[in-house]
Design a protein around this nucleic acid. Sequence first.
DNA 1: ACCTGAACACCGTTCAAGT
DNA 2: ACCTGAACACCGTTCAAGT
Lengths: 208, 208
Amino acid sequence: MPRPKMIDRTAILRTALEIADDDGVTGVSMHAVARRLGVTPMALYRHVGNKADLLDGIVERLLAEIMQGVPPPGETAGLQGPEGWVDALMAMARGARAVARRHPAAFALLLSRPAATAGARQVRAYVHDLLRRAGVGAEHVPRLERILTTAALGMAAGGASERFAHHPPGVLDDDFRALATFVTAGIEPFRSRPAAEPDDASDRGRDD
Amino acid sequence: MPRPKMIDRTAILRTALEIADDDGVTGVSMHAVARRLGVTPMALYRHVGNKADLLDGIVERLLAEIMQGVPPPGETAGLQGPEGWVDALMAMARGARAVARRHPAAFALLLSRPAATAGARQVRAYVHDLLRRAGVGAEHVPRLERILTTAALGMAAGGASERFAHHPPGVLDDDFRALATFVTAGIEPFRSRPAAEPDDASDRGRDD
DNA sequence: ACCTGAACACCGTTCAAGT
DNA sequence: ACCTGAACACCGTTCAAGT
């Protein structure tokens, strides 16, 4: 009869993230994860493929945490006003900052890894959609997406490491106001038309 | 009598960068670098401290390559017009892209590492200076610096990995035009005064 | 001053074997 | 199906020793 399952992918990724939080990304190893789970290193390979896959799994978890408070693609909430796309973008930036605070070490993975995972593609498609709704010409959408997301991630990473300790939570909202101002003004030259109406914006297809 | 010196810091860092180019950042190890230099791993420790120092050394080399074609702080060349700061910023972005092309694997280190090295502080001070000259209020300078440099690095990293292979070199200038447009427009709300005159802008002190 | 050699506790991944 | 055990080629870093 088949053995009872001792571990699964979710437990492995959760443990890997814990180790990153405790000991830094360099502490994340197959041996170390297995040790915490009370299991042999080789037991992991049935669930994660290899170490690269393990790190990609951590990235997926972080992306999911970031997108938690962001309005889903179809929702009108936060997207209805002509400038609703800025709100959605700022929700992502806030999510990124919150995750950077919770997992300052692991957060670096978001900037270092190519992010060709399913979750990363999903986030990219989401931002593409936002920019299209904002009236950005299709030929500029991928470029602006890269500029915006990298800038937001970079600011979240920076804000979490420095200065953060000696500031009350509310004060750091300045960063977001600045980012919102910058993005709103910076994107203006690329808007070939005013923001799309909520009604005709919901029937756009997938991209990538 | 003292032994003849077989290796020095420069040779070690050059070799480490070569390995990163050939085998990726994960291939960079004390053992591997020593092997290429025909020397014992422990011979490196007289010159680099430890592995973190080795990676920081690679970052320093990349930063130096990026800043190569950028007008030095005191120079009026590229800074004289009222919008000269954009030219300087774009020169940095171009330098970043060139380095990302030459060292696509090692380039990731620039985004992943905290960059508290001397060279990184120097680059930061340089951009701070540019923004001040552009008339940005002092309270917004560090924030905007983080947004700008992270965005430029992110775009350089992205542009080097994807799409690059199947585009003639000239076409990618679109990316820079877009970044220049975005930055110029985005920064506008933060400019409390028109750009400083070249003459009274040269006598500002260090920061940090 | 600069490098070697042996050593230690780790690491990613394999293979064959157990239940 | 799921995990173990032994094994391999690696890794970062130490210490004492050679020239």
